[in-house]
């Protein structure tokens, strides 16, 4: 029973880590606080579920969800760049709009995938392995990218946009690219999640942004983010730890409905701790 709980936590944690990456990439590399995952995660789920029930192959279904979610990410970037709308507000606007899109795509509030073939089976260890492989295939190229010319210029955008501009970096292009990346990752997470749980519900992913943020914060608090490798590992470690913490507090009797309050508190505590550390070292 307990081992089941831990394994289930790991499975959920792996999906959450993809969301944490989707939050981390624009936030840490572009200094772009992006909340679009709240809309792109369920969008990925909605499209993937709809495509699978329509008889498309799994690869096609995933590809379309990733692409569509990436386009929503680009939209957030463009709303911010072209209309000078605050990054968070742009994300809220787009994720609110995505909700209606999701309902349109699904045509009904929920879709069951119990009679369909999905990437995942009842074998939880097998499922975990599939996710680990997928995440490795995503993060390794990302690590290489960030060390190449493009990646260094990408990081410069968030660290010092004025300097980046003087070095000939197009802030707009790199921001659009980063938000596309973030959107597609969140869409992928949604597409994988519906295949794990075998259904899609329009309410999926409400508050996912705060869970992703909590994962990122916890990961950075545990292993730090002062080097590129640590920064890249933080969302992964953070999401796994955070999901286990959730499991523990629920097994201690916390009502699942109180979980969001708990998560919010965790984020606040980590932020306060970071602030303390900064003011001490200054």
């Amino acid at each position: 029973m307990t081992i089941d709980l831990i394994l289930n936590g790991a499975l959920q944690g792996l999906i959450l880590s993809i969301i944490a990456y989707a939050i981390m990439i624009p936030f840490r590399f572009l200094d772009f606080a992006d909340l679009t995952s709240e809309g792109t995660y369920p969008l990925g789920g909605a499209i993937c579920a709809t495509c699978i029930t329509a008889g498309m192959s799994l690869l096609e279904a995933i590809f379309i969800s990733v692409l569509a979610a990436g386009i929503i990410g680009i939209s957030t970037a463009l709303v911010h760049l072209k209309f000078k709308v605050n990054t968070m507000l742009a994300g809220i606007i787009l994720s609110t709009m995505a909700y209606s899109i999701n309902l349109r795509i699904m045509g009904k509030p929920n879709i069951s995938l119990f009679n369909c073939n999905t990437l995942f089976s009842n074998d939880i260890i097998g499922n975990i392995s599939i996710l680990v492989v997928i995440i490795t295939l995503l993060i390794l190229p990302l690590a290489l990218f960030l060390r190449a010319d493009f990646g260094l210029r990408f990081r410069a955008v968030g660290l010092n946009p004025d300097f980046a501009k003087k070095q000939g970096v197009s802030i707009e292009k790199y921001t659009v690219f980063g938000l596309f990346l973030a959107g597609s990752l969140a869409g992928l997470a949604g597409g994988l999640m519906v295949q794990i749980q075998n259904y899609m519900d329009i309410g999926m992913g409400v508050g996912i942004i705060i869970h992703g943020l909590a994962s990122l914060m916890i990961g950075e608090a545990i292993i730090g983010n002062n080097t590129l490798n640590k920064q890249l590992l933080a969302p992964f470690v953070g999401a796994l730890v955070y999901q286990q913490i959730q499991g523990i507090v629920i097994s201690f009797g916390l009502a699942p409905s109180d979980l969001k309050f708990f998560t919010g508190s965790v984020v606040l505590i980590v932020l306060a701790m970071q602030r303390q550390r900064v003011s001490k070292s200054a």
């Binding site: 060390r147 190449a148 260094l152 070095q167 000939g168």
Partner: peptide
């Protein structure tokens, strides 16, 4: 090195190889 590499890329085409 990273700062220096950024300045070196100023007027060159970015490449898919490490700035090292």
């Amino acid at each position: 090195l990273e700062n220096f590499a950024l300045s070196q890329m100023r007027y060159k085409k970015p490449r898919f190889s490490s700035y090292k």
